[in-house]
Simulated assay, not measured.
Amino acid sequence: MIESIDFLRDMPMTASSNAMDEFDGRCNCLAARQAARYLTAVYDKALQPVNLRATQFSILHKLANHGPLAIGELAGVMAMDRTTLATNLKPLERDGLISIVPGTVDRRAKNASITKAGMARYRQAFPLWSAVQGKFEGAYGERKAATLRHAMRAVLATGFEPWAEAASE
């Protein structure tokens, strides 16, 4: 990692500063992560009254609307690596909002499903999500928000495989 920025040390100070300024303005990852952190905080705050975080709400939504899903399949639809998903599933399972059971075909596989308590919490949270969603779209613009969602979903189809196993050397 440090080796990758060695070229900055050899540049004159003004050129180095310009390269860093350009990074801030052009880095797709930084811009997306900043916006994601900002929106996550907004949605987390809105969902606080029902003791859910935005990611937990999204997981409940997927399970409520798509039925039980294998953990790998859920990770795929959430665009998360399995380890991060597992971290997010633990409090939902602990609180009885989801159940994780062995698969029916392959007992080694795990399936996640929403419980009655989870569905009740999801129904409590949905109006809170809807209100913050409307507030954001009112401030940002409904058409701009739709365009933003479309653009972010298109990123998922760029062909990168961020969670693929590294090829052995």
Rank of each mutant, 00 (worst) to 15 (best):
D6C: 03
N18A: 12
M78R: 14
A86W: 01
N111I: 11
G118A: 09
I5V: 15
L128F: 04
W163Q: 03
L63K: 04
A41F: 03
F23I: 04
R108D: 15
P127E: 09
S168P: 01
T158W: 05
T55L: 09
L63H: 08
A64D: 12
S130Q: 12
L47Y: 02
A41M: 10
V101I: 14
N18P: 00
N111K: 12
K62M: 12
E93D: 14
H66Q: 11
F23M: 10
A79E: 09
T83G: 08
N51H: 14
F7W: 06
A70T: 01
M20V: 15
H150M: 03
L92I: 01
A41N: 06
F160K: 08
A41T: 04
A35F: 10
R33I: 12
A19G: 03
V77S: 12
F57H: 12
M80R: 15
R108T: 13
F136D: 00
T55I: 14
G76R: 10
R123I: 05
D6Y: 08
A131Y: 01
C27K: 00
A166E: 14
S58K: 10
A75S: 15
A70D: 05
R123K: 15
A112V: 05
H150S: 13
S58W: 13
A157G: 00
D6P: 01
D44S: 06
W129H: 14
V132N: 03
L8T: 02
I98Y: 08
N88H: 15
A145Q: 08
I2R: 03
N51F: 10
N88A: 14
Q124N: 03
A70I: 03
Y122R: 01
L63A: 05
G72E: 13
A167R: 04
V42N: 00
E161K: 08
T87Y: 14
A167V: 12
L47A: 02
V105S: 03
K90W: 07
I59D: 06
G118N: 10
A32F: 03
G141C: 11
R123F: 03
E93T: 09
L63S: 07
G25H: 07
D95V: 01
A125R: 12
L89Y: 05
